[in-house]
Design a protein around this nucleic acid. Structure first.
Lengths: 219, 219
DNA sequence: TCGGCTATCGTACTTTCGTACCAGGCCGGC
DNA sequence: GCCGGCCTGGTACGAAAGTACGATAGCCGA
């Protein structure tokens, strides 16, 4: 039986997505989360989840960072990004970072149903009015490299990286993760190696590249 | 005689702005720059500049960081932000960081003329269709604090901060600025004090808060 | 079963960072 | 003139970061 996780910080919108989803797919189990940590915790707790509807703008998330974390820690779970933003460049970046689909918040029930069914069948899905423009949007080489590097991080490494990017000291990170500072250092050495950087500041820069810049930036 | 600096990385758009501007204001001197460094260099070289038309998306610039740098290093120069983005939240943030006006790239010649004249007369200017919505957009307390802190940095301190945010070592920064590493350290101590942070990673986070997030982020 | 990946922790070491104290020269405002 | 800010340095020191050797254990797929 297919299992869906709805990740959005807006209760009403979650409810709307839920009712539309159960209406669209027979015998669908649905979970909900209202923060990025909640999403990751739920995925840990319930490994049966097949699909996540992920709002890019929830607490603890910055742009595509949540998507990257999800893809890095749960590569087997499909992710459909749900966003009010329908700029083809942003959609392109989301797909490059492993999204299986992109659902504008303005989408109708038909589209939502289509999206869920397609992605559960392991097909990529985009709204019809975006397909052409997204296909034309060039993938940034920088972005695909970034995606590949970040996806190679282990879950724990990703957690360390996010804490580093918040400016925490190694000792603070160790306490937060209930390990020794020495272990944090070991992870950091691996992280630097994988990301191709030489210190923590550069690593945090890499992570922050995932924040969604102004859509006009690349024009 | 009023003097204007047009800062945009697109030559055609610079030309359009220039012809419209000289047409709008009598005896207007015009300079151009195509990068943030160019803007700052020109302002150093020519202290007579009264007004900058600043595109938010030029090389070396990330979101509002260029505006903040400009305001910090040349508080006497008025800045009109020129952007394709007309989200009221972004406009609000630009104004909170010291912009004297905001000109959508879709603006007509009349609006450009109005904008330049108003700002040269030391009045704030916004396009009519944005005035109400921007007035309703709340100022983020975080943002105004950020603006105040960043504006208190000296020019050299700002340069050090930008290099720190790129992940450079103190020694590398020293070489880049032709000073001793010890001097960089002195600047950093002052920077941490003013920004209210405790290490370089947190400082770079503060600077990167100025990047323009996805317009929908605050909804 | 075995190799590979991950996570954990250890010692010792170098480098970098950050702070403590200090000071001289420069410039602008009161 | 004097005060205050900025920019520049100097010595010294402790703290943090990062590296280089290690090690043990678990898990998973070939």
């Amino acid at each position: 039986m297919p299992c869906l996780l709805i990740a959005d910080d807006h209760p009403l919108f979650r409810a709307a997505l839920r009712s539309a989803a159960v209406d669209a797919v027979a015998a669908l189990e649905v979970r909900e989360a209202d923060s990025l940590d909640g999403v990751l915790a739920t995925l840990e707790r319930e490994p049966d989840i097949d699909l996540v509807l992920l709002d890019l703008h929830m607490p603890g998330n910055h742009g595509l960072a949540g998507l990257a974390a999800l893809r890095a820690q749960h590569p087997g779970v499909a992710v459909v990004v749900v966003s009010a933003n329908d700029d083809p460049q942003v959609v392109r970046r989301a797909l490059d970072h492993g999204a299986a689909g992109y659902l504008p918040k303005s989408a109708g029930l038909d589209e939502l149903r289509d999206a869920i069914r397609s992605v559960l069948a392991c097909e990529q899905w985009l709204p019809t009015n975006l397909r052409n423009s997204v296909a034309r949007a060039p993938s940034s080489i920088r972005d695909t490299h970034l995606a590949a590097r970040l996806a190679s991080l282990s879950p724990q490494q990703f957690r360390v990286l996010t804490l580093v990017a918040e400016g925490l000291l190694n000792k603070q990170i160790a306490d937060r993760l209930n390990v020794q500072e020495r272990t944090v250092k070991a992870h950091l050495t691996a992280i630097f190696d994988r990301l191709g950087v030489r210190n923590r500041t550069q690593a945090s820069v890499v992570l922050r590249e995932l924040e969604l810049s102004d859509p006009a930036r690349r024009l």
